[in-house]
Design a protein around this nucleic acid. Structure first.
Lengths: 346, 346
DNA sequence: CTGAAAGCGCTAACAC
DNA sequence: GTGTTAGCGCTTTCAG
């Protein structure tokens, strides 16, 4: 390993001068600076971040904790985080709890010790436990906690839009396939659905679950959704929606004719499946970027007030939602008038 | 931050004793050890990894470089890496190059400086450049380079199996939708297909591409595949296969009747799409785990000889492959002994 | 069995 | 403008 000493020796200066030449080139004479930089370059010198961090009380790294890296949603968040972190010169530790709350706490504990701050994405464990987080800078994604900074998609608006969409199609009995009990987003959505239902007494909302936020979770919910008598289902996320849809189809029903299905997150899965999935869209990469910004800011100014940043979300209508079978005339839709799909034979 | 000094103070011992009590409990008196551990626990002490690493000349972290974290394949590799790394107490830096070779080199450079070793997954850049890697321990995934240790799925076997499967179904004109030019796996597969084609003179293989290893890449290939006259297509990976399939269907053709489609990697996408995708399966989580093992070993013993670990892969038949339209009688599928199919119309 | 002390690579006072 | 030096938190001789 080539250290600052080697460079100093090669350039014939002291290590302090090397350090300065690299950190603040204006504070050394031009000739010296050039000599130092040339030497550093020739030797392929890279400052040891651990040593630098030790001195500065910084690690120049942040941690990202997600419940499931194979879920496209979190992969995209991670991408946003990587982008922003890279442009700020900080590295990203990624930890995948695989939906296990206990593992989440363990991983968080590890992350805290070796990062300047942590990004907690859709935490499944109850993180009230300040013992593990302490005063460590943290930003939550899809989870608001006390005065901690948070970033989330405004899924309340999305949930309302989805429900209104289904209502306008003529659905009156709608199932919500809930995600993990500890999910903040899930709770928010349930409240939002409740509020809409109160505004429209003719609507009947069946909250079903909780189910695991996976394809399997969606499949598992199919029977219960059908038994509920709902003509449309809104699922916790796209992954669940896809699992639900596939199982419903496997059971011999048709989507959207027998059951309309909509998801959340608008991941790229939506356009891969048949029928294409109606979903609540948001800019997920941006969620990752904003969360990173907030975290880096928090690291600089630990006493800054926490805020909840809500990014817009809206519904993207595709082929998995349509009027219920009983209605022959489609309800009036405002602008993007979708052509009424003629129910063809299979 | 609670340091070793705090613990030493609380336990009424020196910092050296604390260090020993934690690292090698047998070397301190039982009573002292208990007192130290109790104090450490009470204070919530976690050793600072940067400091520890500085002393040991180690960072206790490894780097993982992938071309696309949103591809389920790499997400699963990352999961395997996380699992194994966690059980060895090393942290994982994840870097996503977003399929950009230049970014890849940059990210690699950054990773080298702050890790004990690097896992290079399906590198798109030419890494011969030892300037950037130097003597840094590295393990390749899906890429063999000189004497470096490597882990890959035996996709040659998989490619052969896929091609034989299509041949036994009666296909004679088969397209291969190639991935990135610099992909090692892609080159291996092309060679394997070539070898099979030479064994079976009646087979015509159209190598098409390169195309980006994404859904869009697959869609873009659809026209060319159809124009090639092939009755079956093998795609670089599932993502490409899915893009191809959807576009082909959107163009009004039927899969598998007008075109059979098969992919590689057997990601969870295969069972989400309609028809379910035939794909070459391998244990991808295990790839990540084995690669991590190899890397940790390499870090311990830098002079150990490199080896290429090939994990088995095999074909999983689903609904996206079937005899070509021209054949009315399906070829026998049970025994792997394909009866010579009656030649169909071109 | 335990403490004192050196030193990992680096930065930031503080001299000169 | 540049060198000297202390010390970040930790492990590891070396004494006792």
């Amino acid at each position: 390993m080539v250290t600052i000493k080697d460079v100093a020796g090669a350039a014939g200066v002291s290590i302090a001068t090397v350090s300065r030449a690299l950190a603040d080139p204006d504070r050394v004479a031009a000739a010296t600076r050039d000599r130092v930089l040339a030497a550093a370059d020739a030797l392929g010198y890279t400052p040891n971040r651990a040593a630098r961090g030790l001195r500065a009380g910084r690690t120049n790294a942040i941690g990202l904790l997600v419940p499931d890296l194979t879920n496209p949603y979190f992969a995209v968040v991670a991408r946003g985080v990587s982008q922003r972190a890279r442009s700020h010169g900080v590295a990203v530790f990624v930890a995948d709890s695989e939906e296990d709350p206990a593992a989440e706490v363990d991983l968080l504990r590890g992350l805290v010790g070796q990062t300047d701050g942590v990004l907690l994405c859709s935490p499944r464990a109850l993180i009230r436990d300040t013992d593990v987080l302490g005063a460590h800078p943290a930003v939550f994604v899809n989870h608001a906690l006390d005065a901690a900074p948070s970033v989330a998609l405004d899924d309340v608006a999305g949930a309302v839009a989805a429900l209104e969409h289904l209502r306008s199609l003529g659905h009156r009995s709608i199932a919500y396939v809930a995600g993990p009990t500890t999910s903040w987003s899930d709770a928010r959505r349930r409240d939002a659905l409740q509020a809409v239902a109160e505004r429209h007494p003719e609507l009947e909302i069946h909250v079903l679950g909780p189910y695991p936020p996976t394809v399997e979770g969606g499949s598992a919910a199919a029977g219960v959704v059908i038994a509920s008598g709902a003509t449309a289902a809104l699922a916790f996320n796209d992954t669940v929606a896809v699992g639900l849809m596939r199982r419903v189809i496997a059971l011999g029903l048709r989507v959207p004719h027998d059951l309309s299905v909509a998801g959340f997150d608008d991941t790229y899965l939506t356009t891969l499946v048949t029928p294409a999935l109606t979903s609540v869209h948001g800019d997920v990469t941006e969620v990752g970027r904003r969360a990173t910004d907030l975290l880096l800011d928090r690291i600089e100014r630990p006493d800054a007030p926490g805020e909840l940043v809500l990014l817009p979300s809206w519904l993207v209508q595709r082929d998995s939602t349509a009027p219920p079978l009983s209605r022959l005339v489609p309800a009036p839709t405002t602008s993007p008038a979708p052509a009424e799909p003629t129910p063809g034979a299979p």
